[in-house]
């Protein structure tokens, strides 16, 4: 290596050797130091109980429609429906409504806290507190009501209270059937009926 008489040239000559070596050393160790793990933010996900969702089959806001032999259209709606364990054809529903439109144009609406539709036995049963509203102006409540899916028969299992077009009404049982002889659809309150009508002034 040439010898220089003055300090500046000697310093530059050393720099030309030392600086590239330092650069090479830094470059070599660049990949040896890893970064601290998890510095990136975690993926946002909903805290839904994944196990139950995976285990249960669940239908949201389903609608089920059917027509009976004599032409009554029945539509069921519910918030959520779960199949009965072990029963392929039976379905449990939460907050269920049912609408019966008989061919004569009258309607009967049921809303209930919970319900069961049994496809094989062709029966739907609504429980909890059942509200019944008919197009003929009857608004009743009962505990439990069963409806046949093949023939238009809707029957409460127990007492029913409420109001008719004129006055309050209570009865031991209520059943919507088609009168065999006349073919008319009758809403029959039986097992003791009491109507209290207060005449307007």
């Amino acid at each position: 290596m040439a010898v220089f008489d003055n300090r500046h040239s000697r310093a530059v000559a050393y720099a030309k050797v030392i600086l590239p070596l330092a650069a090479l050393a830094m470059l070599a160790t660049l990949f040896l130091f890893d970064r601290a793990p998890g510095t990136a933010d975690s993926i946002p996900y909903a805290r839904v109980d994944v196990e139950t969702l995976a285990r249960e089959q669940r239908l949201g806001n389903p609608t089920y429609g059917t027509v009976t032999e004599d032409g009554t259209a029945i539509t069921f709606r519910a918030n959520a429906v779960r199949p009965e364990a072990g029963e392929s054809d039976v379905v449990n529903a939460a907050r269920m409504t049912a609408r019966f439109e008989t061919p004569d144009g009258a309607t009967l609406d049921l809303t209930a806290d919970e319900g069961v539709i049994d496809g094989r036995a062709r029966i739907a049963e609504l429980g909890g507190s059942v509200d019944i509203v008919t197009s003929t102006g009857y608004r009743m409540t009962t505990d439990r009501i069963a409806a046949e899916l093949d023939r238009s028969t809707v029957e409460t299992t127990g007492a029913v209270q409420g109001s008719g077009p004129a006055g309050t009404l209570e009865a031991g049982r209520m059943i919507l059937t088609q009168d065999a002889s006349s073919g008319q659809y009758l809403l029959v309150f039986n097992a003791g009926v009491k109507l209290v009508y207060v005449p307007q002034k």
């Binding site: 008919t134 197009s135 009857y138 009404l169 659809y185 009926v193 009491k194 109507l195 005449p199």
Partner: peptide, 15 residues
């Protein structure tokens, strides 16, 4: 005065 009607059954023609 309120009128009270009691019976064994009441049939309402839906139509």
């Amino acid at each position: 005065a309120p009128v009270e009607v009691t019976a064994d059954s009441l049939a309402v023609d839906q139509a």
